[in-house]
Design a protein around this nucleic acid. Structure first.
Lengths: 191, 191, 191, 191
DNA sequence: AATGAATGAGATTTCATTCAT
DNA sequence: AATGAATGAAATCTCATTCAT
């Protein structure tokens, strides 16, 4: 069994349950079923876990997105699917997103953050590029920065709902609909 | 002199300088010029400062926004001014925003958060309402949820820039321009 | 209203509820309905309360004893009444007795202790003196030390019961009966 | 080397020297020769030491009693030896007895107290049983409750002397003599 | 006499980290 | 590689006491 992976898994679980600040290394090792000292064979500190956690989270995000978004669907449909996917990830992992955010921010691991998140930005960027090439969205769009804006917009919209309560599916449906309309206009979608 | 206020002021300052994790209560009281025990007269812990800090931050935001946005300007101009203002606040206080976010999230003060942010949401909502009444933006807009989307979008765009480095004015200018165009289409602004 | 008395009353109440160690001066003043600083106008410290509390306790004890013991009763009857009275006091105030004991012990107020308890010792001593004069108990008895032994014996017997639970009336009845027989022989009572 | 035992040993020593109130945990760990944090590995607080201390104290008492009381001596002689032993223990450890008493009383460890004291009660009870079988004491005696009365009587008599001053050997001799006579009659000893 | 906010020395407590096994 | 008891520096927190009002 891979101890490093066990540590990361356990950390995600414990962080979600009690927050990053209140979590002691001893909580993590207990959850991982390993000895206190073993932790230090793999990570020099609590914060150094963050990039590894971030990586796992981005993988999860990508998995959910790719499971949700149909390759052959039209761009407008794909866009609503992306929104669905991001809402889903936010609902299930918003505590982790927050802690990655503040955990990375409070260290010198910041540069790794961009690298880690890059695959998701790129993937959306590519979708936008295709849509632009197909003439489905306005031609004035710069795909790279716009991809980031879209992801930021949707994530923040989802957080506004799920920050308080992850059981808000009614609210979430309304918010998603608002986001879709907002995006349709922002991107100048022609149907 | 109001000690409670002094504590909050000092906490914001010290948190900005050294981050929330590295800040000891003793740093805060030193900066506030009060005795260690006095802190506990007003706050039971470091995290319980968060709602009070959030309140001050929203006040600061409102002040900057109202100083930046001209009352008589047209809505499109006001919108770019709102974007400028949010970027400004984010640049100067992104550490605080991050910590409010994770600080609130890791406690049970979540419900207070909506209340605290409400004035800002409302203010933008009113601007949108006026613009809608004047026929400047598309009539299909629901002003309340859209106000939240707009603020979330701009904040997340600003954070993408300033999270790494608050000296990125060139990058910021480009990002703001992207946001403005994005918003112009999203809101269906007619000039 | 007499503040000093209010403080002593409040202290007894709070000490009984939470023990001497866990009781802060702030708890006492809160219960007494006075300001923190006022305490120090009457007592220089928490432990300096002890002699005053002890005095009140001995008064209570004497009151109960004198209400229970009939002046005209024969000595053997009076003795069982004394046992009843001490059991009663111990049941209701054993926490206080313990804290007076340790409270006085941990200070330099020890000398006051003897003075404070003296009236009770003396009263029992007088009863023994009378009984001796009446030839009801053995003539070899030294009344003063024996009075102390009797009180010590009965108190310790009562504590053995009530230390754990003040609702032990069945157990208490048995124990009292044992004490009475023990004392009857110890004192050489002739009936 | 057993750290838990070292802590209890050190605590008894330091408590005797400076009293329970004035003793800091840091004093205990210093005396035990361990690190501050190690204390918390074994005990959550100063008061939680009490049951462990009580146990050691009862062991010490038993040891002294068994060293003092001669197995082949007649019961009357054994009884005076028991009195001697209890006076000795009280002289040397009255501070500890007081603190066990109030320390146990102020916590929820009360139930353990009976268990801890049981061996001593039983041992005296057995002596009484033998004496009763040998017809040396009155046949109406119930050995178990009487054992407790005897121990309580002697302890309280000893405390009356040594509470104030452990150098009172003259007083102690007189008091012991009083106790012996008192007991001789109470138990109906036939010589 | 009475108040109670403020104090700060000093206690408790935590927990990341080490290291002998 | 793995362990986990032990560490102790460094933090939090308490609360008796003061003192300006």
């Amino acid at each position: 069994m891979n101890k490093k992976e066990a540590i990361v898994r356990a950390a995600i679980q414990v962080f979600r349950e009690q927050g990053i600040d209140k979590t002691k290394i001893s909580d993590i090792v207990k959850a991982a079923g390993i000895a206190q000292g073993t932790f230090y064979l793999y990570f020099p500190s609590k914060l150094s876990l963050m990039p590894a956690i971030a990586e796992v989270m981005v993988e999860k995000t990508m998995t959910i997105v790719q499971e949700t978004v149909q390759v052959n669907a039209s761009f407008p449909v794909q866009l609503t699917q992306i929104v669905d996917a991001i809402f889903m990830v936010t609902r299930d992992y918003h505590e982790i997103q927050a802690l990655i955010y503040s955990g990375l921010a409070s260290t010198e691991h910041l540069k790794e953050w961009e690298t880690v998140y890059a695959p998701f930005y790129n993937w959306v960027s590519e979708r936008l590029q295709e849509a632009k090439a197909d003439g489905i969205i306005r031609q004035s769009i710069n795909v790279d920065p716009t991809a980031k804006l879209v992801i930021g917009l949707v994530e923040s919209a989802a957080e506004q709902i799920y920050l308080y309560d992850s059981e808000q599916e009614d609210q979430a449906r309304i918010q998603k609909s608002e986001v879709n309309i907002f995006l349709k206009h922002a991107l100048g979608i022609r149907e």
